Amino acid sequence: MTNLSKLFNHLCGRIIILLAYLLLELIILIKKLESSCTAPIAKIKYLRTIEGKNPTIPYTKGMKARHVQCTVCLSEFNEGEKVRSLKCQHVFHRDCLDTWLKGYRATCPLCRIKVLPDDVVFNHGVLRNQQGSHVNGGERLPFFLSALHVGN
């Protein structure tokens, strides 16, 4: 009877390992399908989207009554500088806001109102992740498996 019990335990252990392996393969397959379904947005197209939604304007003295400084860099605005005025009426230096938006943040730095559509930011993030993940021959493995992966 003990031999039968040992065989059963051994068989259960093997089945659990096989099921875990199949589950991981399924997760990897789903991740690959997800990444192939989204169209990555290149940096230049992303910047054009920012410009289209929030055009650059020159800073004028008339704006000074409400906006004295950029709250990202904390520098005062100068006449003629390129700024972006968002729909929420907050004004920032163009480069300061663009840097903020390129960091996956699609919101105003002050009030967090959406500045860009979520899908645009997500698709740009997909491209950035694809460019930065050439580990394991471009194949994406879960973190705990990447340590076990032997490069070819």
Rank of each mutant, 00 (worst) to 15 (best):
residue 73 C to Y: 05
residue 97 L to E: 03
residue 26 L to H: 05
residue 44 I to R: 08
residue 55 P to R: 09
residue 72 V to M: 09
residue 69 Q to P: 00
residue 113 I to S: 07
residue 140 R to T: 13
residue 108 C to E: 00
residue 52 G to M: 09
residue 75 S to M: 10
residue 149 H to R: 11
residue 125 G to E: 02
residue 63 M to A: 02
residue 4 L to G: 09
residue 146 S to H: 04
residue 144 F to A: 03
residue 95 D to F: 02
residue 31 K to M: 08
residue 51 E to H: 07
residue 119 D to H: 15
residue 124 H to D: 00
residue 111 C to A: 07
residue 91 V to P: 01
residue 84 R to T: 06
residue 42 A to L: 03
residue 73 C to H: 11
residue 19 L to G: 04
residue 41 I to P: 00
residue 41 I to L: 13
residue 66 R to M: 03
residue 19 L to Q: 10
residue 60 T to H: 14
residue 11 L to F: 12
residue 139 E to W: 07
residue 86 L to Y: 04
residue 15 I to S: 10
residue 41 I to D: 00
residue 10 H to Y: 15
residue 149 H to D: 14
residue 62 G to L: 08
residue 33 L to E: 06
residue 70 C to I: 07
residue 103 G to P: 01
residue 43 K to N: 08
residue 40 P to C: 02
residue 86 L to E: 02
residue 1 M to L: 09
residue 75 S to P: 03
residue 139 E to H: 13
residue 2 T to L: 13
residue 152 N to S: 14
residue 39 A to C: 10
residue 136 N to W: 07
residue 59 Y to T: 03
residue 115 V to E: 00
residue 115 V to H: 04
residue 73 C to E: 05
residue 147 A to K: 14
residue 106 A to Y: 11
residue 109 P to N: 05
residue 97 L to K: 00
residue 129 N to W: 11
residue 78 N to L: 13
residue 108 C to T: 05
residue 128 R to H: 00
residue 23 L to H: 09
residue 5 S to R: 11
residue 116 L to D: 03
residue 38 T to S: 11
residue 39 A to E: 12
residue 23 L to R: 06
